[in-house]
Each structure stands twice: as structure tokens, then as C-alpha cells.
Design a protein around this nucleic acid. Structure first.
Length: 841
RNA sequence: GCGGAUGUGGCGGAAUGGUAGACGCUACAGACUUAAAAUCUGUUGUCCUUUUGGGCGUGCGGGUUCGAGUCCCGCCAUCCGCACCA
């Protein structure tokens, strides 16, 4: 074997990164006539360092972007920073630094880290959401939606820390307590801004049907999130009056099984009663304990308070039902009141058993039709209606329709479509976010900031010494004159949810004029994003908000795009083994050493325990810093690892052995490229393999099945190594360099130059993807499996397309087959052409 | 509580209803070397068998089918999300 110098990434990486930059290789041309491809990965939050998860995400996008370039597309592959958010304020409090300075330093560091990985990014379009050039346009868009009636204000609950006197994010609530103060968190109401996403509920739901290149699970999650249901809204009247409690139910068929009415603590009826009832006030206060998350509310013990009120049953006014205030009823959903049918709803049954309320069966459980209901498991399956007067004998669906029809005819209720989706609360009581461009005036109310006064910039001189929103405390910032009446007024001091920032950045990437958020024509040329890649944790919120925002902009005529992301891919996390010492203190991987199955701490020699494989996190010390591994192995080995083995949608376990293996393969590929012999002759088998793999790798990359593409490249490398020198082999070597170029671009460029392929001055980033010759894909021999009673007994290698009768004869001629048949009668023979024969006895 | 997903050798994983374990990692044996590294060759699901070979194997239990990792029904286990983390 020729003795070749090893591939040295420390020289090659930087060399090629510089050349790509000098040639502006990855700058997208808005005026190109080529077919376009917009490849986008979810932009990172600038937390300080690039995480290995980012590396995986961006490597996937990069392979696709580079592949698209090689297949003749004009590619837009931009990068930016989701730069507003709480960590910057936490850093400000802990480290006494300004959130802006901290964020911008982080961006500089992370950008340098990304550049070392050689991503084919158009850096000319870089943006950061914390800069007024970005958020000023966002304020303009917000005001356009406001003008269109899609923004409004209402009271809504927040997590309130009574000691720190501040609003807490769900994340800052640990076991129902404030993360800094440790005080039990309360739910408190504040007046906040909302976007009318519910106006688009039906559109967003129907639109999911067109997203056939999204994962089914994400579409299903969004469908459930929107939560469309059909039901009945009806009034349970107070005896003798027209007033009453409006209830929404999806089970009007079970109305004769009702045993109580439950209303939310925030329901107006509860509020009114509480004014004169201290014990109810106490109960309502009790309900407000705990966080605002669904899990908190749903898993809290079901508690009720009997108000003493009763209401008439609409189907039988002489039948009165008690009214409870209950902690599991949400004011935000439906009407904030439900009727309880304990026999056929688990939550209602738990409640009824606890408060000794009647439980009446109204849906038969098979043959069981008794009106009395035993046990503590509700019956929620379909069945025949029983114990319900005229409805007896109907199916559930018939009864639903019947009750709704009756309610509408008699005027006490109507059929209604209900969505679980709630309007999007965008107010945040925080500094480091986009200021909401509204001025509150005593006389004029909420007044939009005039367009020529945008952007409303964040003040720089703020302090984080005390908790709460520094904008609130700022001596001058919020003091302004009303744009309408010029009287003294006050700026809105809440800022926008950072999800607003990420709801339109993909449009700004496509078009970034200075004087407006985007140029419609330019943006429409690129949008929708052809391939969007990011973490599954964004499956609902970010993706739903971005879909909504795009539709809202479309609704007001700013852009003719309905769905922002044509194809979506959600990648898995990067995990790593965890280690602990005997006391349970977490150890980093470089603190421990493995001897067989035994782990020891390197410094002390004490035993260590290898624990679960978990998502990399600082607290468990199982993180690997991308800079360190790029230092050690170079960008290409790291990229190769990110693509190998695990399917991209699943978790990938980081391992030393794995990266070592990738490093070895990079070197092996490099050695292969020095083996071009100049020999003559055709190697038909190798040609076929090469072309099968060209076709396979292309298809795998298009399907984002990078692990399979990687396996095929290994396969080709193995075949080349085994083959004798020939012209075919030399071609295969050039081909494998091209095929691996999207994955290991630095090595590929270096090899491309060495192979003399770049004699015209070209680089592999601009080279075309190899053409598949379909004639070479065809096999002339096939191996056929011979089964007897479905069990494999032999295999036969025959000419492709051999007639069925001949295949059968050959199969029966096999000794192993005859042995397995053992003289029994053959009932039939199943032949799958060119694949298999199954002899059925 | 509600919702979603996953389960195949020692490990990560392949497999249009048609030869289960491609490809990689690990481990073991051998070659080269004064030695090590690097590299190369081979073996590596499991049990039985002297061999040819055979039995069993895709979380568990059923079913459909000539044929099931794949389709259907019912379980079990694990992981993830739940509206103010991004």
C-alpha cells in the first residue's frame, strides 16, 4: 500500500472555509433562474456556547443544502439568532452584566464555533431578533395586526411569586414554588395582550391536511392542540328565572345522567357569591394555589365547594341540580362551567364519589342497564342509551343529535363547535424582549405608537438589582405623550413573547429591506421553506404560532403564503452516558476511566457508577463541547458522526468509540483517494455497485435518511477496497468523493484538488452530483429464497427473469428442499418472481 | 390527568408483507512491527451437533396470511410534550 500523509483537518478545514467565504460560495442569489431550495434549521438561542444538539441539527441541514446545490438548485441556507429571552436577564442578575452585552458576546462566540464546522451558510443574511433592525419591523407587523382587529387585551392568569413580587414563567415554578424565593406560587390576574389565533382555528386545522411532508405525529399533536369538538351549549336556569349557568358539553346524550353543575373559581357566578361568603373566598384562594400549567391543574386533587345554589335541568325543570365551584374546571375553555355526568366521565365520577353525589347510568355497558352505577371506573365507551326517557334505545350519536335538535327547537341551547385552542397571550412582564408598541392614555385608551416613531427601542440604562420588570421601574422610559391628544401618557412596559420573534424570521431571511419588514415579491420567491429542521419540542407552539402568523399576514394582504414550512423534519437529541461517584455527585466523562465493566475516577482511583444515557445537560455533566471535539478530530469527523448510525429523528448517543471510528473512516476515505491507478479495464460488478449507491445515497439524502446514506458510502468504500485496479475503480473513487462531499466537505475539497478534478479551477461545492446510469443498475442474476411451509430451506442463484416453471423445477430439484418435503404432498407453490419460492404442503 | 412516541444481537441500527441482523461500533483471533500506534485479514444472535446441518429468535399474549419485525386486537415497559423555557 502506498504510504500517504494523513488528512490533516487542522490545516484543511480553515483553508476551505476561507476559500468558500472568498468565493461567496453560499450566498443565495435572489435573481437566480435556477430552481430554488430554501433549507432552514430552527435558529438557536444564543445561550453562550454551541451545543452538540445544534451541531447535529445544522449538519443535517447542511448536507441537504450542499446536496441541493450539487443537484442544480439555488439554495437559501441562512442563520440567525433567537436572541431575546429570560436567560439573558438571569445572567444580568447573577453576573451583573447587561443582557444586551451578554447576548451579543454569546452570538460572536457561537458564530465562530459554527464557522469552524464549515456549514454552507449565507452569512450575509444573518439577523438577531434583539436588534432594533429586526424587532422594529416586528412592532410594525404587530400594529398591522392590531389595526386588523387581531390583537386585543384581556385579563389572564400568571404565576405570581408573592415574596419576590414578580411574575414567574412556568419554568421558574419548581414544585409549586418560586425558584428563587421558594414561596408557594399563586395564580394572579393581569391585563394582557392577546393575538386572535382562535379566529384561525378552523383554517389551521384544515391546513394540516395540506402538510403531507410533515411528520404524522406533529400534525396529530397540532390537531389535538386545536382540539375541535362538536357539542351543545345550553343554559341551566336558576329556579323560576331566565338567568342561569351556560354549560358546554360534548356529551348531550348523557344529560339524564347529570348529577351536578361545576363552575370555575373565576366564573362570574362564583365571584359574585364570594363577595358575601368568606368560606367561598377561601376556597377560591385555595384553587388559585399552584401553577398555571395544564399538568398542575389536572393532577391537583379534585376539590369542590357546594354553593348551595341549584339550577333546573333543561329537560325536566322540576329536577334541580346542585352547583359546585370546582378546581378542575377551566374558565378559559368552553363556558367555564360543566354538568357532571359521573357514570360516564372519570373526573366527574371521582368528584361524585368524594362528595356523595348520585351516579346514574345512562349508557348501557353491554347487557348492564341498571340505573345504579357500581365501582369507581366510569364507562366511557359507546353503547345504547338507557334510563333516559324518550332517548332509550338510541345510539350515543343519535341521542346527541336528538338533544341538540330539541334544544334548538325549544330555545334553551344550540349546537356549537368548540376548540380547545386558546388565544395566544403575548405579554411578558420582562425587559429583554420586543417592546409592545402601545401607549396607554387616560383619555384615549390604548394608542398604537405611530409608524414614524418605530422602533420603540429598549432603554440601555436598566438595573436588575430587584426582581420584576426593569421597564416598569425605569424613571423616564415609559413616560411619553399620547400620540393622539398629546396629554401625559404611559408606554406599555410589557414585552412580546419571544415566540413572536420566531414566528416570522424565516420571511425576513428571504427578504430584508431597511424600510419595511419584507418585500412581498422577494419573500414569495423563496417561501415556503422547502425543508425546515429542528427539535420535536417545537412540534406545537413554535410551529403553530409561525403557521398562524403567516396566515394572519396573508389575511391582511401582506404576503400570499398560507403555510410557511412545506416540509418539516424533527430531529432527535444527542445523549451521553452519565457518571456519578459513590455519593451521587455527577462526574464528567473525562473524569472517569473504564477498565472492562468497571469505572473508576481517574484522580482518586475511587469507583464510579455509570448511569443512564441521557440528554446532554450541564447539571449532569455529560456534555461534550463541540469546540473540543473539532479541535481533536476536525469538522468532518464530527459531522460524519452526527450523521452516522442513529436515524436522524431518534436520539443519538455520543461516544468516544463512535467518534474514533468516524476519524478512522475519514482517514480511510483519504487513503482511498490516493489509490487512483490509471489502470484500464471495466469491472462490471463495481460499476453496478457504484451506480446503485449513487442512486441510493441521493434518495437517502432527499429523505433525510442520513444514517442509510452513510452506510451506503461505507459499503462502496468496502467494495472499492476489495476491487482490483481498473478504470471502473478509479471512477468509483472519484464518485465516492463526490457522494461524501455534502457530509465531509473539507476532505472532499482536498481530495478533489489532489485528484486533479479541479483543473478547471472549480471546487467540489460547485460540482454536479453524479448521474445515475439506469442500465448499470440492472442485475443479471438474482438469488431466490426457497421456502418450505414458509421456512427458508435453500437459496438459488439464477438468471434474472427466469420463467416461473423453471424456477419451480430448480427449487424442487434441491436436495435440502426434498429433505424438508420428506415425501409429503405438495398443495401449492407460490412464486414471487426473482425473489422467492414457497412450497406449501 | 390529557396527548404523543419508542421497543430487533454485547451496543447504535438495516430490512416495498417475501433469505432478519445491511452498515458501523465493541470484543476476540491472526498478519505486519524490536515494540507500540496506525493499517490489513478473519470471527462475532443463541442453543444443539463431529460435520453436512438443525432448533429457537425482532418487549409480552392472541389473530389475519402460503409467508409477519412489518398488518389487526389486547397488554407491558420506557421516553417525551402540555400554552410564560427556547
Amino acid at each position: 500500500m502506498t504510504n500517504v500523509e494523513r488528512f490533516n483537518p487542522h490545516v484543511a478545514d480553515a483553508r476551505w472555509q476561507k476559500i468558500w467565504e472568498e468565493r461567496s460560495s453560499f450566498v443565495a442569489d435572489d435573481n437566480s433562474t435556477k430552481p430554488r431550495a430554501y433549507v432552514l434549521e430552527m435558529f438557536p438561542y444564543p445561550s453562550g456556547r454551541i451545543h452538540i444538539g445544534h451541531v447535529r441539527n445544522y449538519t443535517m441541514g447542511d448536507v441537504l443544502a450542499r446536496y441541493k446545490r450539487m443537484t442544480g438548485h439555488e439554495v437559501l441556507h441562512p442563520m440567525g439568532w433567537d436572541a431575546f429571552g429570560m436567560p439573558a436577564e438571569n445572567a444580568a442578575m447573577e453576573k451583573k452584566v447587561h443582557p444586551g452585552g451578554w447576548t451579543r458576546d454569546n452570538i460572536a462566540n457561537m458564530k465562530a464555533q459554527l464557522k469552524r464546522l464549515g456549514f454552507a451558510i449565507d452569512w450575509t443574511r444573518e439577523l438577531a431578533t434583539c436588534e432594533p433592525e429586526y424587532y422594529g419591523h416586528e412592532q410594525a407587523l404587530f400594529l398591522k395586526l392590531y389595526a386588523a382587529g387581531l390583537v386585543y387585551r384581556k385579563e389572564s392568569a400568571v404565576n405570581w411569586d408573592p415574596v419576590d413580587m414578580t411574575v414567574l414563567a412556568n419554568e421558574q415554578v419548581i414544585d409549586g414554588k418560586g425558584w428563587r424565593s421558594g414561596a408557594p406560587v399563586e395564580r394572579r390576574k393581569l391585563s394582557q395582550w392577546f393575538l386572535k389565533i382562535t379566529d384561525f382555528a378552523e383554517e389551521l386545522l384544515v391546513g394540516l391536511g395540506s402538510l403531507d411532508q410533515w411528520p404524522d405525529k406533529v400534525r396529530l399533536m397540532q390537531e389535538n392542540w386545536i382540539g375541535k369538538s362538536q357539542g351543545l351549549k345550553c343554559r341551566f336556569r336558576f329556579p323560576g328565572g331566565d338567568d342561569g349557568i351556560d354549560v358546554f358539553t360534548t356529551r348531550p346524550d348523557t344529560m339524564f345522567g347529570a348529577s351536578f353543575i361545576a363552575i370555575a373559581a373565576d366564573h362570574p357566578v362564583a365571584q359574585k357569591l364570594a363577595a358575601n361568603a368568606p368560606d367561598l373566598q377561601d376556597f377560591i384562594a385555595e384553587c388559585r394555589k399552584g401553577g398555571t400549567t395544564a399538568a398542575d391543574i389536572e393532577t391537583a386533587e379534585k376539590l369542590g365547594f357546594n354553593t348551595g345554589l341549584t339550577v333546573e335541568h333543561p329537560l325536566d325543570p322540576s329536577w334541580h341540580l346542585p352547583v359546585y365551584v370546582a378546581n378542575f374546571v377551566l374558565m378559559d375553555y368552553g363556558t367555564g362551567a360543566v354538568f357532571g355526568c359521573p357514570a360516564h366521565d372519570q373526573r366527574d365520577l371521582d368528584f361524585a364519589r368524594k362528595y356523595h353525589l348520585p351516579v346514574t347510568r345512562v349508557v348501557a355497558d353491554g347487557d348492564v342497564t341498571d340505573s345504579s352505577f357500581e365501582g369507581n371506573v366510569a364507562y366511557t365507551n359507546p353503547g345504547v342509551i338507557v334510563n333516559s326517557h324518550w332517548m332509550n334505545g338510541m345510539t350515543v350519536d343519535q341521542a346527541k343529535a336528538d338533544v341538540i335538535a330539541k334544544a334548538e327547537k325549544e330555545g334553551w341551547g344550540q349546537g356549537q363547535t368548540q376548540y380547545r385552542l386558546r388565544d395566544w397571550g403575548v405579554s411578558r412582564q420582562r425587559y429583554w424582549g420586543t417592546p409592545i408598541p402601545i401607549i396607554h392614555c387616560q383619555a384615549c385608551g390604548a394608542v398604537p405608537v405611530p409608524n414614524d416613531q418605530l422602533p420603540v427601542k429598549l432603554p440601555e440604562d436598566v438595573s436588575f438589582d430587584i426582581p420584576g420588570n426593569p421597564l416598569d421601574r425605569h424613571p423616564t422610559w415609559s413616560k411619553v405623550d399620547c400620540p393622539k391628544c398629546h396629554q401625559e401618557a404611559r408606554r406599555e412596559t410589557d414585552t412580546l413573547d419571544t415566540f413572536v420573534d420566531s414566528s416570522w424570521y424565516f420571511i425576513r431571511f428571504a427578504s430584508q429591506p431597511h424600510d419595511k419588514p419584507f418585500d412581498r415579491a422577494a419573500a414569495e420567491k423563496w417561501l415556503p421553506v422547502d425543508q425546515y429542521i429542528g427539535g420535536v419540542e417545537h412540534a406545537i407552539l413554535h410551529l403553530l404560532y409561525a403557521r398562524f402568523w403567516t396566515r394572519a399576514l396573508s389575511h391582511i394582504g401582506m404576503i400570499d403564503v398560507k403555510e410557511p414550512f412545506a416540509s418539516l423534519f424533527t430531529q432527535g437529541m444527542v445523549t451521553h452516558q452519565t457518571y456519578q461517584d459513590a455519593k451521587g455527585t455527577w462526574l464528567s466523562p473525562d473524569q472517569v476511566r473504564r477498565d472492562g465493566d468497571i469505572w473508576t475516577i481517574i484522580d482518586s482511583g475511587a469507583p464510579a457508577v455509570a448511569g443512564r444515557i441521557e440528554k446532554m445537560s450541564k447539571s449532569k455533566k455529560n456534555v461534550v463541547d463541540p469546540d473540543d471535539i473539532v479541535d481533536q478530530y476536525g469538522a468532518d469527523a464530527v459531522r460524519w458522526f452526527m450523521l452516522s448510525d442513529s436515524p436522524p429523528e431518534r436520539d443519538l448517543e455520543w461516544s468516544e468509540a463512535g467518534i474514533e471510528g468516524c476519524w478512522r473512516f475519514v482517514q480511510r476515505l483519504w487513503r482511498l483517494t490516493s489509490q487512483v491507478s490509471g489502470a484500464d479495464g471495466v469491472d462490471k460488478a463495481l460499476d453496478r455497485k457504484t451506480h446503485q449507491i449513487i442512486a441510493g445515497v441521493g434518495a437517502d439524502i432527499e429523505a433525510l435518511a442520513f444514517n442509510k446514506a452513510v452506510a451506503k458510502i461505507y459499503d462502496l468504500a468496502n467494495a472499492i477496497e476489495k476491487a482490483a485496479p481498473s478504470a471502473s475503480r478509479d471512477t468509483a473513487i472519484r464518485t465516492i468523493v463526490t457522494l461524501s462531499a455534502p457530509m465531509v466537505p473539507h476532505l472532499a475539497e482536498e481530495a478533489w484538488t489532489q485528484l486533479g478534478a479541479a483543473s478547471g479551477g472549480g471546487i467540489i461545492a460547485d460540482a454536479p452530483w453524479p448521474q445515475v446510469n439506469p442500465d448499470l443498475l440492472v442485475e443479471d442474476e438474482v438469488t431466490i429464497a426457497i421456502q418450505v411451509k414458509g421456512k427458508l430451506r435453500d437459496t438459488l442463484t439464477v438468471a434474472k427473469g427466469l420463467p416461473q416453471t423453471e424456477v419451480e423445477a430448480l427449487a424442487l430439484a434441491s436436495q435440502k428442499v426434498q429433505h424438508a418435503i420428506d415425501g409429503a404432498d405438495i398443495r401449492k407453490i407460490i412464486v414471487v418472481p426473482d425473489r422467492l419460492v414457497n412450497i406449501v404442503l
